[in-house]
């Protein structure tokens, strides 16, 4: 029964957040598909959101949660623009491999 009433330390949530962020960085580095690289960025944003919510709980401040709300809205806008850019790049290059997209000029 002691397992059922156990409290979870805030530090564990922060460790999970750090682990997710690191996995996002690894994905950003090793993935070679433009869309998957973009997904790794979303993963990093989510990891940071988790630590914002954990700290909002820790300090009893609602502003931490509001910041997460703003991050979500900006991330949604970022996803729309980023995917539009990916479509535009694909139309010109006909590839999604980041190694072949090595010029800023379309």
């Amino acid at each position: 029964m002691s397992l059922l009433q156990h409290d979870v330390p805030i530090a564990w949530y922060l460790l999970l957040s750090a682990a997710l962020f690191s996995l996002g960085v690894v994905g950003f580095l090793i993935k070679r598909n433009l869309i998957t690289v973009f997904m790794s960025i979303e993963l990093m944003l989510n990891a940071v959101n988790l630590s914002f919510v954990a700290f909002a709980y820790q300090w009893h401040q609602v502003r931490g949660q509001i910041f997460v709300f703003f991050v979500m809205m900006v991330a949604a806008a970022e996803a729309a623009v980023g995917l539009a850019i990916i479509i535009a790049v694909f139309r010109v290059r006909a590839t999604l491999a980041v190694d072949r997209i090595d010029l800023m000029k379309l």
């Binding site: 997710l20 994905g27 997904m39």
Partner: peptide, 8 residues
């Protein structure tokens, strides 16, 4: 964590 690792 499993989902994130699977993503990679």
């Amino acid at each position: 964590l499993a989902g994130a690792i699977n993503l990679l």
